[in-house]
Structures are given as structure tokens and as C-alpha cells.
Write a protein that binds this DNA or RNA. Sequence first.
DNA 1: TATTGTTATACTCTATAACTATA
DNA 2: TATAGTTATAGAGTATAACAATA
Lengths: 141, 141
Amino acid sequence: MTNFDLRDFTPYLLSLAAETSSAGFQTYYKGRYGMLRTEWRVVFHLGRYGPMTAKEICDRARMHKTKVSRAVSALEVKRYLSRREQAKDRRHETLRLTAEGGRVFADLYEEAARYDAELLAQFTDEEHVVLQKCLTKLAGI
Amino acid sequence: MTNFDLRDFTPYLLSLAAETSSAGFQTYYKGRYGMLRTEWRVVFHLGRYGPMTAKEICDRARMHKTKVSRAVSALEVKRYLSRREQAKDRRHETLRLTAEGGRVFADLYEEAARYDAELLAQFTDEEHVVLQKCLTKLAGI
DNA sequence: TATTGTTATACTCTATAACTATA
DNA sequence: TATAGTTATAGAGTATAACAATA
């Protein structure tokens, strides 16, 4: 088969869809809290799953350690997160959201759920199931 | 509804899927021809739809004029593209692929079709239809 | 005044290597 | 030697404003 348009090329469609939807949600974490995407992902993990080390965030969020390191530093400056060395192995630091960080998470978590529901409102439940399945496979997760 | 995981957040899934699939195809246009994504998109348009102005590429490919301008310059340096001023309005230049640019397009077009087919091989035809419909809507095209 | 296109600049995001500190 | 995390650096991608040339 060789007669497709750029609009049929899956990586192109994925790029456009990802850009559009990411730009939409960026207005919340960037506009309200001056955060970057990596910072939002770290906040999400700590807020959703509780305190953990940077290494655990790397593994769960599929983020490289340098991304997590910089995001954690930025969040610390913003006072959304605190670190505490673990006594048994001082290479590990437990990261947890501050009270303020918790409020930021709660706000963004709610907006994320709303934003996602809004995006999916244009599809049927069956379409949503197929979309999520396909994206999960394409993302390799 | 507020109990979702990051893996349920559509913009996150889209980002991962887009990154993964784009990185895969990048090996062709970057690895073989040292091109950037914007350059590949310009080559695609000129190869698939024939000579046109930068403005037309902007409109068809939904690319900003500065992106197109830089991509065209880079492609000109690589001798994959030539420009010719239009006599009636010297603000317009008709862009067309050179013979070498045409060969590059033919190669990449074939690889793109193969790559896309490979990505979609893991899905049924019905799933493919739903995926394309959803992505097209999410991309706003 | 409007349109086509270029240049300058900055920001976002990603990737990799080299490094420190601890174990 | 291996692991957790940091720093430096570069590359890729995007966005915007200011500009020149033409109409």
C-alpha cells in the first residue's frame, strides 16, 4: 500500500493530537503554578501514590533520572515538595508533597479528570476503550 | 469521576505514543538524510502534492511560516529543493524538489508506508478505523 | 495597509556523558 | 563495582515579535 496522505500517517496524527491536548492542559499547571510538564508528572505521582524516592518515580513514570532530578529541584524551590534522607541508605531520599504541594496536586488532579472527560466526551464508550487500548500499545506500556 | 491513574490520562498516553512512534521513524529521515521533522514534512508535501509556495505548505501542513521558512532553507542547502520566484507576484516563490530531493521523498514515502503498516499490524481493521477517527478529532483536523 | 517570508530570541522538552556520594 | 542522584551540554521542537520586501 502506497497511496497515503500525511493525515493517514499514524506518527503524524499522534504528534498533532499530543501537541493539541498537551497544550490545552499546560494552561493549568503552567498558568496557575508556573510548572513544567515533568514537574506536573512528579507532583502527580507523589500526590496519587504517596511519598517515594526519585528512583521510584523514574520507574513508575518512565522518566529518566535527570528529568526527575531537575523537576524535584524546581518543585523544592516552589515549596511544593520536601526531601528527607533515609537513615539506612543515605543515597535515598524520600520525597513528599508539602501542604501547599498537596493543594496544588488536588487542584490539578481535579482539572486533569475534568479535562480528560471533556476530551473523551466526543467519543462513545466503545471508542474510548479502543483508543486507550491502542495508545497503550503504541506507547509500549 | 476522580480516581484515575496517569495511564488513563489521555494527554499523557498521547505524548508517550507520539514520542515512541516519532522516535522510530526519525531514524529514517534523520539517520539517512540528516533531516529534521519539519524538513521531512515539507519534503512530504512537495513530493506528494507537487510544487507549491511556502504559504501553501503552511496551510496544508498546519505549520507556522517560521518553521516552513527554516525547513526550506535547510533543504535548499542539502540540494533537495529549489525555489523560483513567480513573475506576477515576487513575494511568492514556487518550491519544488530537485531530482535528488525526489529520490529522498520516494525512499521516505515508502518507508513511511511500511512503518505505518507495521505500527497498525497489531490492531484489527475496526480498531484502526476508530483510532484514526479519534486521533483526527483530537488533533483538530 | 496587508501579505509573504526571514531573522532573532527564548522557552520547552529530550538525551547523553561526566561527575559526586554512598554502599 | 554498583547504585542514587546531580550537573553540564547539546539537540530538537515550538512560539512570538520584529523586520524587510512586495503588493
